[in-house]
Computed example of a mutant assay.
Amino acid sequence: MGDIHAPFFPARGLYSSRDPHVLRHQFREMHDAGITLVALSWWGRPSPMAADSQGVNTDDALPIVLAAAEEVRQEKGRDDLYITMHLEPYPGRTISAIKDDLAYIYEHYAHFSAFLPIFYVYDSYHIPPEEWALLLQPWGKESVRDTPLDGLFIGLWLERDHGQALVDGGFDGMYTYFASVSFSFGSTLANWDDMAAFCRRQGELEGKGEEKQVGKRGFLSVLSVGPGYDDEKIRPWNKHNTKPREGLDYMDRMLEAAREARPDAISITSYNEWGEGTQIEAAKVGEWRCEGNWEGNSTHLAVRPYVYQEYKGGDPYLYLNNVKLWRELLWNMTATEDEQTINDKDEF
């Protein structure tokens, strides 16, 4: 019946994320809004076990997505649109499996000019730091450092002690991911100043020998913001984490908190995660649907009308335009600060 089990409805209608025409339009939108890096959910190499929660293998979409991104790069005549991976926790994900994943990714996708070897690792805390160190520390027995499988590895900071665990594991930085404020320690705005400061301190460490943690590689802070959160259509039991959008107010509070913390980058959760109500992609105004339920044992389907939510003022591009404004604001602010204090290591 056209129900997408989400609080909003896409302005472009129901679409496939494997449609090159749709992808090109989406990349144009993101590029025009100042988004330069797009992280794709990746659930591992092709196998019966490597699929998302809906049983969909994400790997076979990557060539289509990367090709569409490259077309937009050529069309724009610019090289500031990149694609990277959001490594998801598929069953059986181990250090050895991840090393094999990296070999597969580099073999199949490194030749795309749009590919950038930055790897966001979701639920990285499921693997202990001492195991991550075997892969990400220079001295680890399965280390990828200074090999063709090297890259920037950004782990999830969820709970209070995860920052140090990421450093110990050899990660290059952290991100917070969640768009529901206060869902976790990492998504609590009051903690962002201290978290970003922690990252800056780690980047200044100069350890020696096998104790070297970060040194000259630095330790990046990536704070994640979102427009709101509402996954009640797919997780009715999670209502307590719903965060109304309040027009632009909710997102602006997160962006202002991130600006004050001075991270290395800001990520947006999300561009098109419609099921969790975190999307900034254009939404249709006044779209109706019918919710149905069977009455007893009869074959009569009772339906009731439901109107999808819409962005404030009925502007489908409200959030993409807001991202563009903030991108220009932060870019100009950073350029001005760099001119004034070029040698200050703590600059945003």
Rank of each mutant, 00 (worst) to 15 (best):
G155I: 00
L116G: 00
V121Q: 05
L166P: 05
L158M: 11
A110W: 03
S143Y: 04
D161M: 11
G170H: 09
P117I: 12
V167I: 10
H108D: 04
Y125M: 06
D123C: 09
P129Y: 12
G170E: 05
D161Q: 09
I154Q: 05
H162F: 02
F185Q: 05
Q137V: 00
K141G: 13
I118L: 09
E142Q: 15
Y125T: 01
K141L: 15
Y177P: 04
S180P: 03
V181D: 13
E131S: 11
Y120P: 00
G173R: 03
V167Q: 01
P117Q: 06
L135N: 12
F112C: 09
G173S: 05
F115Y: 08
F183Y: 13
Y177N: 06
I154T: 08
F112E: 05
W132V: 10
G173L: 03
S184G: 09
G169V: 06
Y177V: 10
S124P: 02
F178I: 00
G186V: 04
H108W: 03
T176G: 03
H108K: 14
W139P: 00
Q137N: 07
H111M: 03
A133L: 13
I127H: 06
P129G: 07
S180A: 15
D150F: 12
V121I: 15
Q137R: 15
F178V: 01
D168H: 12
F185C: 02
V121F: 11
G169Q: 07
L158R: 11
D123L: 14
F153C: 11
S124K: 03
Y122L: 03
D161W: 09
